[in-house]
Computed example of a mutant assay.
Amino acid sequence: MTFLTDHLVVDGVRIACRDRGRGEPVVFLHGTPSHSYEWRDVVPRVEAAGHRTIAYDLLGYGLSERPAHRDTSVAAQTELLERVLDALGVGEVGIVAHDIGGAIGQRFALAHPGRVRRLMVVDTVSYDSWPSPTWRKIIDEELDDHASLSQDAFDALLTRQLRMAVADEAVMTGEVLDAYLAPHRSALGRASFFEHQVRHYDAKYTEEISGELGALTMPVRILWGERDRWQPLDYARRLAADIPGADLVVVPGAGHFVMEDAPERVTREIVDFLAAPVPRTGPE
């Protein structure tokens, strides 16, 4: 169900991870409601193209630890990313980041520009784009009373949301759907979903950096599913206008989980982006 094979203890918490290959290191950050499983069809191909690939489940997600009373907001996950890279001995890195992972990537690149060689954001949250209307309704109606949800009711709720995340709902069935639901198939898993993920759906983490995006000077590519129902394409265009030199690539017929709808196209775009030379900005 997962391609993660290793574990790290970072800042006193256990992180499930995958670190393979040689070459320029690139870290893959997943979104929500998700875990690193979303990259399963992409990361091995990027590794085969000659890159060191690093993927991990965010704290409170997937196979990583779900500690009670631990901050798992975008801001806290950004700080943890620094510690993960330090633990792996990685200095400068490329970042490929989806959904809330994109917010983490943006914040990390602004806070540590010398450590980010290049940045790709994929159907990322930004500005005031999140939570989406359906997630806002769930927050209003379920967040403070989630303990009363049965497993069947929870599975139905999350399945509805996950099927909104793909353009072709047939993709989100069978083993694929089961893999996305698997971390939440217990009382602890359901509680962790609301407390570690949904409770932190808050646009303040992107709104507070919206005026700083012009400071991003590393190469940036924005990859977006044309039919994203959670993060409308207008936000991608706004990001492309605000980030100097950023290029926007729209994937036709793909939804928010663009790597599920079009894994081959996503892989090609990532490999192409990683192959492009990075301009030298310092003295010779």
Rank of each mutant, 00 (worst) to 15 (best):
A182Y: 00
G101T: 01
R118A: 08
P232H: 12
P33M: 00
G31T: 05
V266G: 08
F194V: 10
E208K: 11
A48L: 12
Y61Q: 08
V121H: 01
D242L: 09
H30W: 03
R227M: 11
G225D: 07
A156H: 13
A109D: 04
L188V: 15
D261K: 02
R117F: 10
E208L: 03
V171C: 13
I209D: 07
V46H: 00
S186Y: 07
V122H: 02
S34M: 13
V125P: 10
R107M: 12
S34W: 05
Q106E: 12
G174T: 03
I100V: 15
H69I: 09
E195H: 09
L177P: 09
K137L: 14
G62F: 00
A262L: 01
T53D: 04
P131T: 06
E38G: 07
F154N: 03
G50K: 04
A68E: 09
L162K: 01
D145N: 14
S192F: 06
G105Q: 04
G62D: 03
A187K: 14
G31F: 00
I54E: 02
A275H: 14
S150Y: 09
A276T: 14
R118P: 12
L239A: 12
R238I: 11
S64C: 11
T159Y: 09
P183D: 08
D99Q: 00
L119T: 05
G94C: 12
S73V: 11
Y56I: 00
A170F: 07
A246Q: 07
L213I: 06
M1H: 12
A68L: 13
I95A: 07
A167S: 15
L158W: 02
I54G: 03
E141T: 15
A246T: 10
D99S: 10
R107V: 06
I15L: 11
L216S: 04
G21E: 02
V26L: 09
A215Y: 09
D128C: 10
G62E: 02
L274S: 01
A55R: 01
R22W: 08
E24K: 12
R268T: 12
T72S: 13
G62C: 02
A97P: 11
I15E: 00
L248D: 13
L29A: 06
M218K: 01
A246V: 11
S150I: 06
H256E: 05
Q106D: 08
F28I: 04
W39C: 03
P44A: 04
Q231A: 09
V198Q: 05
R83L: 15
E264N: 12
D57H: 04
